[in-house]
Computed example of a mutant assay.
Amino acid sequence: MTTPAHPDETQSQRLASLEEHIAHQANTIEELSDQLAEQWRVVEQLRSKVDRLTERFLALEEGALEAPAITRPPHY
């Protein structure tokens, strides 16, 4: 195995590569965090709509007339 002629150059290249990798990861984490926050807002909106629809359904159900009893038609 040969040793590099300039070991400092190799270390600085490795350091630059690691810094670049970290910068990409930090950017990805920030994007994922933004997407998660947006999805949470959507979930909260949907939860609110479901709650309102449930309340409306229950109110309509309370106001509905009782179903008529099942009886034989008069022609029997």
Rank of each mutant, 00 (worst) to 15 (best):
I29D: 05
D51F: 07
P74V: 07
D34M: 07
E44L: 13
R52A: 15
P73L: 09
T10Y: 00
I22R: 04
E19Q: 05
T54V: 09
A23E: 06
Q39M: 06
T54N: 14
H24Q: 14
R52W: 09
E44I: 02
F57K: 09
L60E: 14
R14L: 02
E66T: 05
H21L: 05
L32V: 01
D34R: 06
P7R: 03
S33Y: 02
V50Y: 03
S33K: 11
T2P: 01
H21F: 02
E31Q: 13
A26M: 12
V42P: 00
I70M: 13
P68I: 03
Q11T: 01
H75Y: 13
F57Q: 08
A59Y: 08
I70A: 13
E55N: 15
A64C: 06
V50I: 15
S48Q: 11
E20H: 10
P4N: 03
L32Y: 06
H21S: 11
E20S: 14
S48T: 10
E66N: 09
A23D: 04
E38H: 11
S33A: 09
E38I: 06
M1F: 08
Q39C: 05
L60Q: 12
F57W: 12
E19G: 00
D8A: 06
R14H: 01
R52C: 07
S17M: 08
V42H: 10
A5T: 04
S33V: 00
A26N: 13
L60G: 12
G63Q: 13
E61F: 05
N27G: 09
S12D: 08
L58M: 15
A23T: 02
T54D: 13
V50F: 08
E9Q: 10
L60C: 07
L60V: 02
Y76L: 12
D51E: 15
D34G: 04
I22D: 04
T10M: 03
A69L: 13
T10Q: 03
A5F: 00
E62A: 15
T28S: 14
D34Y: 01
T3E: 11
S48D: 10
V50W: 04
Q39Y: 04
E61A: 11
L53D: 10
E20D: 14
A16E: 05
D51M: 13
P74L: 05
V42N: 07
I70Y: 10
L53S: 10
I70V: 15
R56E: 15
P4S: 11
